[in-house]
Amino acid sequence: MDVDRTDRAAVGRYGEELVARMLEGAGWVVVDRNWRGTGGELDLVALDGRELVVIEVKTRTGLGYGHPSEAVTPRKLARLRRLAGEWLAGRAAETVPERPTSVRVDVVGVLLEKGRPPQVDHLVGVL
């Protein structure tokens, strides 16, 4: 891992890039990154076949505050749902070639513990 573990923004960017590469390697198409809407940001928006997936990536360097996925609270999920609707209303036509069959929200927790390979936990369809 080639990232400054004391720089939270760098750790977050590293986790998002790792997840984007992982998804693309699995055949997904990342259509948007770090999209800012009213009241928040969507880390990744991707197509899993014809299903549109909004992906929240949480990256941590240890378990002192719990598993990274635990940081995604019901309040955060509600915000992601609102942002997904906003993204669909404003960006979908210009970034998605054909209308998605469905939309879901996934959470990916990335744990970057010193001396270990990154641990990636993908929670599918949390909302």
Rank of each mutant, 00 (worst) to 15 (best):
R91N: 10
R75L: 07
G39P: 12
V29E: 08
G62T: 06
A84C: 04
V53Y: 07
G109K: 00
R82H: 06
A20P: 02
G85W: 05
G66R: 10
V96C: 04
R60C: 02
R104V: 15
L42P: 01
V103A: 10
A78I: 11
V31G: 12
E41S: 10
R75T: 06
T73M: 01
L111C: 11
E86T: 13
R50D: 14
V72E: 00
A20S: 12
A93T: 11
L44R: 03
G39C: 11
V96W: 05
P100E: 13
V29L: 10
V72D: 01
R50K: 05
L23F: 15
A84H: 04
L111P: 07
G27A: 10
A20T: 09
L112W: 10
V45K: 02
L23Q: 13
R33F: 10
P68H: 01
V72N: 00
Y65T: 12
R60A: 09
V19A: 02
A26M: 13
G109P: 04
P74T: 07
L44T: 02
R33K: 13
R91C: 09
E51A: 12
T95E: 14
R82F: 14
P74Y: 06
R81P: 02
A71N: 03
I55H: 01
E16Y: 04
T101G: 11
R99A: 14
V96N: 06
A71G: 00
V54C: 05
E94D: 09
E16T: 12
W35N: 15
L63N: 13
R75C: 02
G85E: 10
R99W: 10
G37V: 14
A26Q: 14
A92C: 05
V57K: 00
V107I: 05
A46V: 06
D43G: 03
P97T: 08
V31S: 12
T61V: 15
L83N: 05
V103T: 11
S69H: 07
P68N: 01
A84K: 05
V96L: 05
L42D: 01
A89T: 01
S69W: 04
V30N: 01
G85M: 02
D32K: 08
G66N: 04
G90W: 09
T73L: 02
P74H: 07
D106P: 09
D106W: 12
L111G: 10
M22Y: 07
V108M: 05
